[in-house]
Simulated scan of single mutants.
Amino acid sequence: MSAHPAESEALLTPSEVASLFRVDPKTVTRWAKAGKLTSIRTLGGHRRYREAEVRELLDGIPRQRATTA
């Protein structure tokens, strides 16, 4: 069993995921610990997230429309 993602698979940092969801990076880490988001650990122990999974989760959230007055 291989724990390595496919070479062509894009991975995002917690900061990149946080900016997409407009939350703090610590929130992204809590989501991973709660099992809401799958994380991959680098050799240095840092978390990375599969872009495809993040985009899928993001697409499930209704978008807020900017209101102009």
Results as ranks from 00 to 15, higher is better:
Ser2Pro: 13
Ala3Thr: 13
Ala3Gly: 08
His4Thr: 07
His4Asn: 09
Pro5Val: 00
Pro5Leu: 01
Ala6Val: 07
Glu7Pro: 01
Ser8Pro: 00
Glu9Leu: 06
Glu9Asn: 04
Glu9Ala: 10
Glu9Ile: 08
Ala10Pro: 00
Ala10Gln: 09
Ala10Cys: 05
Leu12Pro: 07
Thr13Ile: 01
Thr13Asn: 02
Thr13Asp: 01
Thr13Cys: 02
Pro14Phe: 10
Pro14Thr: 04
Glu16Thr: 12
Glu16Phe: 00
Val17Asp: 00
Val17Asn: 00
Ala18His: 11
Ser19Gln: 13
Ser19Tyr: 05
Leu20Gln: 05
Phe21Cys: 01
Arg22Asn: 12
Val23Leu: 09
Val23Asp: 13
Val23Trp: 12
Asp24His: 15
Pro25Ala: 08
Pro25Thr: 03
Pro25His: 11
Pro25Cys: 10
Pro25Ile: 10
Lys26Ala: 12
Lys26Phe: 15
Lys26Ser: 13
Val28Gln: 00
Thr29Lys: 10
Thr29Arg: 14
Thr29Glu: 14
Thr29Ala: 13
Arg30Cys: 10
Trp31Leu: 07
Ala32Tyr: 03
Ala32Ile: 09
Ala32Lys: 08
Lys33Asn: 12
Lys33Met: 14
Lys33Cys: 07
Lys33Glu: 15
Ala34Pro: 04
Ala34Thr: 06
Gly35Tyr: 07
Gly35Leu: 06
Gly35Gln: 12
Leu37Ile: 03
Leu37Thr: 05
Thr38Gln: 13
Thr38Phe: 09
Ile40His: 05
Arg41Gly: 02
Arg41His: 15
Thr42Trp: 06
Thr42Lys: 08
Leu43Gln: 15
Leu43Phe: 14
Leu43Ala: 13
Gly44Leu: 07
Gly44Phe: 04
Gly45Gln: 01
Gly45Arg: 03
Gly45Glu: 08
His46Arg: 14
His46Ala: 11
His46Phe: 06
His46Val: 02
His46Glu: 04
Arg47Leu: 02
Arg47Tyr: 06
Arg47Thr: 04
Arg47Asn: 09
Arg47Val: 00
Tyr49Ala: 01
Arg50Phe: 12
Arg50Ala: 06
Ala52His: 01
Glu53Met: 01
Val54Ile: 01
Glu56Gly: 11
Glu56Leu: 11
Leu57Pro: 00
Leu57Asp: 03
Leu58Arg: 08
Leu58Ile: 01
Asp59Pro: 02
Asp59Val: 05
Asp59Ala: 14
Asp59Trp: 05
Gly60Thr: 06
Gly60Phe: 01
Ile61Thr: 03
Pro62Trp: 08
Pro62Cys: 08
Pro62Lys: 05
Arg63Met: 11
Arg63Lys: 14
Arg63Trp: 05
Gln64Gly: 08
Ala66Tyr: 12
Thr67Ile: 09
Thr67Trp: 07
Thr68Pro: 02
Thr68Lys: 07
Ala69Phe: 04
Ala69Arg: 11
Ala69Gly: 13
